[in-house]
């Protein structure tokens, strides 16, 4: 099932990616090839098969409820492009 340009627009929006008009054809073609590859799975009979979410047969380990982290704000904010008064800043959000 080949993807349409609308499909590309929708998933680009979900993924917060921009596909320039001149690239769109290439994305449609290559993603369609990939989808065609994975569509082979439809032919496999999986009746009664339990989905495998994880390779290890282990259960979640629980951590004791204790505070082990200390304030590293100034150190960590060195990696951010825009901060002020200890806050990370982004373009104005209107709700």
């Amino acid at each position: 099932m080949p993807l349409s340009k609308q499909d590309i627009d929708h998933i680009a929006l979900l993924a917060r990616l921009e596909v320039a008009p001149q690239e769109k054809g290439d994305y449609v073609e290559k993603l369609s090839q990939i989808i065609e590859l994975v569509e082979q799975l439809r032919a496999v009979d999986t009746t009664g098969v339990v989905p495998m979410a994880h390779p290890l047969d282990m259960v979640q380990r629980l951590r004791p409820d204790s505070v082990t982290e200390t304030d590293q704000r100034d150190y960590l904010q060195q990696n951010a492009r825009d901060t002020e008064n200890g806050l990370y800043t982004v373009p104005k959000v209107i709700e």
Partner: peptide, 15 residues
């Protein structure tokens, strides 16, 4: 938390 009132032109983020 998004802090919309902290700055006039931007939104501040407190995590």
């Amino acid at each position: 938390k998004s802090l919309h009132e902290s700055f006039s032109d931007r939104t501040g983020i407190d995590l």
